[in-house]
């Protein structure tokens, strides 16, 4: 089998059978239902809007919520980027990108600045987003109070009455046990000075990017049937104590591949002697930095 054959096997040309699907897989009534939930979510920043989540052709936990939101937002002129832990080339990202290539035939890209819709799992791209972009998050558990208060009736009431003392109990426990706030991902934020929200399992390093972002940020939780949003230029403050302020953390060294600083780095263990290197988690940003450096030489 030649290289040509391999690539065509990996991405078959749109065949007759795909024409049986509606644009972007979901039928128009379902998309309308999701869009109504999205409008409500945008109108009440940080509020978890229930929606009738559909079975998707992928297991729960693989981004069914994010895919439904993306499906409801996609138009034919959109350019889609999908990332998983910052990378464009991991299983989850590749399969979701292919899914929409086949069912919506939209253009896809790995370049952050070219994309109009970015579906993401666990990261916000390093390249600053613009007003023309939508960032769609895949959310496993949308309820930030869940691990301390298992009753859904009670957590809803707590949100409604703005009783968020419990969130600080969690942070208190962190400090009491570890000496600092050890929550490193899914770090709770208060959106628009009202609702406390789980920003999905992004590293707390990305939390400052949530706040006052020019792009529209949408969060979809498929299994839990919730959609919520941070509209453009909305404040999202990370919760903390006065004497233990929020610290985004991060590694204090440059990327081993591109030399970028001030970006989120993955720790890669390279042998069994404890040797490790730190590389950009955002593959697109890493490639761009290297290409820019080469062009400058």
């Amino acid at each position: 089998m030649s290289a040509q054959d391999l690539s065509s096997a990996a991405a078959p040309a749109p065949a007759e059978e795909e024409a049986d699907y509606n644009f972007a897989y979901l039928d128009e009534n379902t998309k309308r239902m999701i869009r109504r939930a999205l409008l409500k979510a945008v109108a009440i920043p940080g509020y978890q809007t229930p929606f009738a989540s559909r079975e998707m052709p992928m297991p729960y936990g693989w981004g069914t919520g994010g895919v439904q939101v993306t499906s409801a937002c996609l138009t034919e002129s959109d350019s889609l980027k999908v990332i998983d832990q910052g990378a464009d080339d991991t299983t989850n990202a590749v399969s979701i990108r292919k899914f929409f290539e086949r069912t919506a035939r939209v253009a896809t890209t790995t370049r952050t600045e070219e994309a109009t819709i970015i579906q993401t799992r666990h990261r916000i791209p390093e390249t600053p987003l613009t007003e023309n972009q939508i960032l769609v998050y895949q959310v496993p558990i949308p309820e930030p109070l869940r691990f301390l208060e298992p009753r859904e009736t009670e957590t809803r009431k707590m949100h409604a009455l703005e009783e968020y003392g419990l969130m600080h109990v969690k942070l208190y426990e962190d400090i009491a046990r570890h000496g600092h706030i050890a929550t490193a991902y899914a770090y709770p934020v208060q959106v628009g000075r009202r609702y406390v929200m789980d920003p999905s399992p992004i590293p707390k390093f990305d939390n400052p990017k949530l706040s006052n972002c020019p792009a529209l940020q949408l969060f979809g939780a498929g299994r839990e049937q919730r959609i919520y949003a941070v509209p453009p230029y909305t404040e999202a403050i990370s919760l903390d104590f006065e004497d233990h302020p929020f610290d985004p953390g991060g590694v204090d060294q440059p990327c081993a591949l591109c030399g970028a600083t001030g970006v989120y780095l993955d720790e890669v263990i390279t042998d069994d002697q404890g040797t490790r290197m730190y590389v950009c988690s955002d593959t697109d940003h890493c490639e761009k930095t290297r290409a820019d450096a080469e062009a400058a030489q």
């Binding site: 003392g165 419990l166 600080h168 109990v169 208190y172 400090i175 104590f241 006065e242 004497d243 233990h244």
Partner: peptide
């Protein structure tokens, strides 16, 4: 501390 934090205490 829970009731204190619910009442707005924010100094650990």
């Amino acid at each position: 501390g829970e009731r204190m934090m619910a009442a707005g205490a924010r100094r650990y």
